[in-house]
Design a protein around this nucleic acid. Structure first.
Length: 426
DNA sequence: TCTGGGGTCCTAGGACCC
DNA sequence: TCTGGGGTCCTAGGACCC
């Protein structure tokens, strides 16, 4: 029996989150900016209507945004992460099998739900919206790729009212014919351009290509996309977040940085974040990679970028040990006389904390027996009282100039007591 | 005279995703 | 002055081993 997969996708998620606590902004254009207020990463429908593209650099669009009275927000991940968790909880409550795919999307297996997938999805969509105030669209199909494609249509055509089941369509091929090749999930700009040159302009033409040609030119990933468009599932459906294989933490700086001391602080800060995520998935890392780079958008200035992998004697999740490794690597690649734009830390060689290999040499593991309880205590305090309640001196002061700019951030309405919205009857 | 073949691991680069 | 951050998967090629 064919499966019935649904993709539930929040509409303009970050912009919708901002509107939940600012109902006056409904019907009003809203955009959300990336870190450092660099570029536009979310747009409400009204903002899209003004022709503001995804990724538009803020400084180039500032005047137009002001002219149209667009509400502009710095990103507020504390808010979005919490709203996402609320949406996902509602989804998990009603759908038998759920795989969270990203902060604003989840796949659900609706095979065999009573009353049929479409009717179920319509009721369910209304519930999510009532309980969270976040609008969603639902696409349904026999494979994840077709569900994704159906979701695009559900969003685009008002008459579908946010729900579309590809399998229930009277003319499924027509749907594919009207889907641009570049809009197919898994076909990026490179492959799209190449396929267009060959006259393959839409999903239908791609679906009917020769399998072995696609396998050869686009590797098995391309072949999977093709088979999924034919209705043959190739992408697994896994519940629960997969454990990461690498963890990256990096940021562009609020201002250019050239001193080693500041870079050491920043690298310590990013290591602290990465180590938190490492412990939250119950893992230890065997390598720390540290990298830094100047601003590639300023080709006139001297450019330098470098990275250095530092192996750890024993895989660990102990923040001070990871900081020491990152800083040692950074010191090795640092060169004076450059304006650095960005640095970052990557943890790799991840393994479960229980059941890892220990060295036969006499180096005592960094995080046992005394260190593991210390990290647990730090994590517990920060979970209870808020991020960075306890932090590490190596990461420098909270107002260091390298820290990112977020000048238009909304309150963290749902996660910080002091920023709760106040309701008052006057 | 005859100069193999298969396997693993690592890295870099490409492509894609949200 | 100002152009995000965090991931995954695949492949090719080199080093190394037996």
């Amino acid at each position: 029996m064919p499966r019935s997969y649904a993709l539930i996708d929040c509409n303009n998620f970050y912009a919708s989150c901002e509107r939940v606590f600012r109902p006056g902004l409904r019907g009003h254009p809203v955009v959300v900016l990336s870190n450092n207020d660099g570029c536009v990463i979310a747009r409400s429908a009204e903002a899209k209507g003004l022709g503001i593209p995804m990724g538009a650099p803020f400084f180039k669009w500032r005047a137009l945004l002001r002219r149209h009275g667009v509400a502009v927000f710095s990103s507020n991940y504390a808010l979005y992460g919490d709203m996402s968790a609320r949406v996902m909880r509602v989804i998990a409550r009603f759908c038998p099998e759920v795989a969270v795919y990203s902060i604003d999307e989840a796949f659900a297996d609706l095979t065999g739900v009573p009353g049929g997938a479409s009717a179920f999805a319509r009721r369910f969509k209304a519930t999510v919206e009532r309980w969270t105030s976040i609008p969603v669209s639902i696409g349904i199909g026999p494979t994840k790729t077709l569900a994704k494609l159906a979701n695009r249509l559900a969003k685009r055509h008002a008459r579908l009212q946010g729900v579309f089941d590809h399998a229930a369509s009277p003319d499924p091929d027509r749907v594919l014919r009207h889907t641009d090749i570049g809009d197919v999930w898994g076909i990026g700009p490179r492959h799209a351009a190449r396929l267009r040159k060959l006259g393959v302009n839409d999903a239908l033409a791609f679906r009917d290509l020769d399998q072995s040609w696609v396998r050869k030119k686009m590797t098995v990933t391309g072949l999977h996309t093709l088979l999924e468009l034919r209705g043959q599932p190739c992408l697994g459906f896994s519940e629960g977040p997969a454990d990461r294989k690498t963890i990256v933490s990096s940021r562009s700086f609020g201002h250019p940085v050239s001193s080693l001391d500041e870079l050491l602080e920043a690298s310590a800060q990013y290591t602290v974040r990465a180590a938190e995520r490492l412990r939250s998935q119950g893992a230890v890392a065997s390598h720390v990679l540290v990298f830094l780079q100047t601003n590639p958008f300023r080709p006139g200035l001297p450019q330098y970028s470098a990275s250095q992998a530092v192996p750890l004697p024993v895989a660990t999740a102990h923040t001070p040990a990871l900081i020491r490794a990152a800083q040692a690597g950074l010191t090795r690649i640092y060169k004076e006389g450059f304006d650095y734009k960005k640095c970052g830390v990557m943890l790799s060689g991840l393994e479960p904390a229980n059941g890892r290999w220990l060295s036969l040499l006499d180096l005592p593991p960094d995080d046992t027996p005394r260190h593991a309880p210390l990290m647990r205590a730090v994590d517990a305090l920060n979970a209870r009282w808020g991020r960075d309640t306890v932090t590490f001196a190596a990461s420098g002061s909270k107002d260091a100039p390298w820290r990112m700019r977020r000048e238009m951030r909304s309150p963290r309405y749902t996660t910080v007591w002091e920023e709760l919205p106040k309701v008052r009857a006057d």
